[in-house]
Structures are given as structure tokens and as C-alpha cells.
Design a protein around this nucleic acid. Sequence first.
DNA 1: CATGAATGAGAATTCATTCAT
DNA 2: TATGAATGAATTCTCATTCAT
Lengths: 159, 159, 159, 159
Amino acid sequence: MSAIAKEAGTGMGTIYKYYPNKEILINNIYIKIKKEEKSVFNDFNSQESIKLQFENYFSSIIEFFIQNPTYFQFMEQLHASPIITEESKNEGNNSIIPISELLVIAKKQQIIKNIEIDELLMFIGGAVLSYLRWYFNQSKTKQIPLNNQIKLVWDAIEK
Amino acid sequence: MSAIAKEAGTGMGTIYKYYPNKEILINNIYIKIKKEEKSVFNDFNSQESIKLQFENYFSSIIEFFIQNPTYFQFMEQLHASPIITEESKNEGNNSIIPISELLVIAKKQQIIKNIEIDELLMFIGGAVLSYLRWYFNQSKTKQIPLNNQIKLVWDAIEK
Amino acid sequence: MSAIAKEAGTGMGTIYKYYPNKEILINNIYIKIKKEEKSVFNDFNSQESIKLQFENYFSSIIEFFIQNPTYFQFMEQLHASPIITEESKNEGNNSIIPISELLVIAKKQQIIKNIEIDELLMFIGGAVLSYLRWYFNQSKTKQIPLNNQIKLVWDAIEK
Amino acid sequence: MSAIAKEAGTGMGTIYKYYPNKEILINNIYIKIKKEEKSVFNDFNSQESIKLQFENYFSSIIEFFIQNPTYFQFMEQLHASPIITEESKNEGNNSIIPISELLVIAKKQQIIKNIEIDELLMFIGGAVLSYLRWYFNQSKTKQIPLNNQIKLVWDAIEK
DNA sequence: CATGAATGAGAATTCATTCAT
DNA sequence: TATGAATGAATTCTCATTCAT
């Protein structure tokens, strides 16, 4: 907590004014990131084809974390920590609503495989996560093309 | 540490006899799990088709963690922790050698897409991880068929 | 450390804020005592005869430890302890500079024996130490006159 | 204790067979050294002059600790430790009986100053101690002549 | 009888939280 | 109101002692 206060340029007392204890602080950060993550989808144009919308989503969510590397580090370290409450996790799950809705439509239109939405979602989530882990381990010189990842995921879920 | 000793049914001093400090203990557990993970591939029959071998690997590695849920919990909580040293991570990376070699062959035989091995590996790793996260969040009644996951991954990497 | 905190009327955390660990705390006390010991000589009047100055020094340094019995106990217990670093010992040796300088003058004036300064110093140090050990072992009723000690030392070093 | 057992080439259990606990072990070592120290005086020839006997004693006791540097280290570290019992200290004080008796004679014969034996003893003890501290801090190349020390002490106590 | 692995009370150290300024 | 020094419960680690082999 004292390290956080120092980094934030405030006293510890100030943090405790807004967040009664460390658990609440961490959980609020968690939820904040999840909300921002969800908002990535707001700008999307639903006039475009399903495939394009999906690809846009996929690259946007990755771009989001590339632009906010500390968010990614935070999630990597804490998503499985006992400090994150069940309640926070539930609220955090809202972040996948947009892509979930897109998948529902795609499935109805028989564009993608007839697999449970949840199962597809977790699969896509895994692709996002692994790409980002890779990205942040890379020396910045060798950039991995996102195209390949997008093709892999789309070939996977496409009917 | 005292909780670990209690759970292990030993005194704390005994743990410190074998592992000089907590960091070393945790890193040894990390490496042990990674080694076991690698050994999953030992039994494999290289006479089978590439696809079958791949599917076997994929389901085996998932089976491994389902049989050892504590291993999975440990990795989820600690893989991104600063307590895991760079050295341990490097040693841990040996666990993907078997599947890596399989992919090299598959690529040569033009069975799978012409994408860098590392990129394919991280993609597959993401699929494994996301399935397991899902599995352990499930109430045990609703079992998700692994078949779907295998099909998704294979369709993704197949040429 | 907890006993020290209790005695000091603070929490243990407070000690650790100023002294990162026990070793540093102990070494700081060591150096502090040595510095105070040195400052005993500050008040001295260099107009007086060499002999008088010497006698003043001798009785002052003994008076200093009699007034601060805990200082003496600390030194007795810790001067040979491995917790006192070589660096601290070197810094502590500054405390003998004043008397050392006095002896240099005394030797030039052929007042004292033509023996190496260091050898004289150690001899004097031994006399101080042994008197103090004696003093603190005494029941307070039987006070040993310091005069005798001073005569002994002076007769020893005098030409 | 385990370090002691290792150094001694035995198991810890063996030590505990002979010395029920660490305190007793340390105190026994203390007393053993003190006894050896006393025996240094056994060989002495009472036919010699008092002065010669004194000088022999002085150099013998120093020689004793130079030959047994670990004894000196032990005493330096532990003489003021709370682990040494009052009883051990009392028993240890026997080691000064021989020199004490010599001083009684010397005083009767008016060879040395008319100062209390105990005071003379502590003075001499201080000289021994300071010489040894000096000796063991020296780089072995520069040997300090013991003659000077002996002259210093004798001039001090001589009438 | 000798051993040294096992023990756990006690010591050192940390860090979330409080509260006087 | 904002601060960060002070706090001490909780944690890590040590080491004298025991006891099964």
C-alpha cells in the first residue's frame, strides 16, 4: 500500500479515504479494467459483416491491452488471486457481453459452428490471452502479425 | 509457510531443511509441475497419424490438469508472480518441447498452416488454458465435451 | 528485537523504519557510543601539562562509562561479536585519535617512553577496560580509588 | 549446536549425551579454558627472583593464548555473555590464584607498590588482554616485541 | 550407543491499517 | 483535508533440543 501511495503521489491515508482496505481497492481496479475492456466494443459499426465485426473485436481487445500493459500485468497476476471476490468476477464477466451477442447472431446465421456460446467464448478468450502473453514476452523488434491469429481463430469457429 | 507445514503434516523446520526459503520452495514446485506436464507426452505412439497424435496430446494435457486440480490452481496463481524466477520460467518452457516437435513434422508434411511454430504453440496453449479455466469453474454436473475444443483447435491450425 | 521495541516504548515496525535490520541497528549503536566516547576529549584544555591532560583523559573516559553503564555492558558483550562489521570497527577506532595525538606530543617531548604509539594505546586501553570491569563487579560500597590506577598507568608509560 | 557437532565430527545427540544443554556445554568450555590457564603457572621455579617469576608468568599467559587462539576468541565473545553463570565465573577466578600469591609475596618484600592485590591483578589482566587483542589483529609479519609490554607493566607495579 | 532428520517455540521481519499533526 | 510515521498482527525463518532408527 505504501508503494502504491508513493507511485500515486499521495499519502496512504488518502487511499484509505476512498478505499477502506486493500481488498476493496484491488477489486475496484479489477472492475474498472473490465469495464474499460467492455467499452472497447462501443464504437463498433453493426453495419459491417459479422466476420469483420468479429475481427475488429478481436484486434481491438488485443490493442486495448497493448496500449495498457499494466492492465494486462494486473490481470495476469490477480485474476486467480483469492483477493478478487466472486462478486467482482461476476461483474467482470459483463465485459464479454458484446462479443457474446455477436456470436449469438453469427450462430443463428449459421456462419459459425453450432457450439455453445460459452464454449466459443472461452476459446476466443484463450486466443486473446495467449497472444498477449506472447506479445509482452517478445523483444519489441520482432512483431508478430496479428493476421495469423485472427485467421486461426476464425478458421476455428467458422462453420 | 506454517500453513504449508501444517497441511504437509510436518514442522516448519523440516521444510526449511529441504528448501532454504519460500522462494526456492515455490520455484521447485513450479518446475516439478512443468516436468510432470512434459512427461505426459512420453507414452505417445509415434506410429499414429499426426492428427491423432495431436488430439491425444491435447486431451492428455487437459486430462493431466483435471487429475491434478491443485497443479492448475498453483499455476494460475503463480505463473505471473514475481516469485517465479526467470530461470524457472526458462526451465519450465521445456515442457512444450514434445508438442513443438510434433508441430514441426506436421508443418513439413503440410498438414497444418504455414505459421511460425511459436505462434501455433501459444495459440494451442491458450486453448488448453481457457478450457481448463472453464472446466474448474463449472459445477461438475454440466460437463463440457472436449471433442468440440479439439475440433476448434484442429480446424484452426489445419491447412 | 521485540524486547528492544518494548523497552523503547515503540512498535517493532518503528525500529525497522529507521534501521532496516538488527545488524544495522546494533552497528549504529556501536558507532554512536564510540563517537560519544571520542567527544569526551573535546572539553580539554591544552594549556595544561601533558601529564595532567593525560590524567584528565584517563579519568574522563572512565567517568564516561561509569555514567553510562549500559554503554559499557553493550561494548563488553558486542565488541567481539561477528555482528559488528569491520567497517564499524574501523570507524570506531576514531575514538582514540585525541589520546593518540596527546601521546605523540608527549613522546616528542621525551616525557614518556620511546615505545610505538599503538603499543602505548593498547596498554592504556587495557587499563581502562580492567578498571571498569572491576568497578561494575564491585558492590557499590567499596569504591576503588582511581588515583592508584592513574599512578600505575603513568608510572608505566613515563620515561 | 549442529555446527559444533559437525566441527567435532559427531552427531548432535552425542553432544547432548555429555552436556544436557547448550548452556552447560558453553560453561564447561569456559571452565576448562580457565583451568588450563591456571596450570600455566605449575611449571614455575620459585627459586627465581620475584621479578623474573612475574615476567615469566606474564609472557607465559600470553604465550598460552597465542598458542590457543580459539580459546582467546571464545573468551572475548563469551566472558560477558549472560550464558556464563555466576558460578562459572567464580570457579574461573581460581585461575588468578598463582599470580595473586606471587603478588602477595612481592608486596610483603616491598618490591611492588602498596596497592590492593585485587587492584594490581585487574591492572595486569588489562595489560594481558590488550596485548592479545593487538596481537590477533596484527598481520603476522609485524610482530610486536613482548619486552616492551613487560617493561610497561613492571614499571607500573614496581615500587 | 551414535546419529541427524524432525520439531516448534522463539526470533527477525513485513506490511496493511490507523491516527496525531 | 491530506499526510506518512507509528503500529503490531501475521509472516518468514532459525536453532536448541528430541527421538526413531
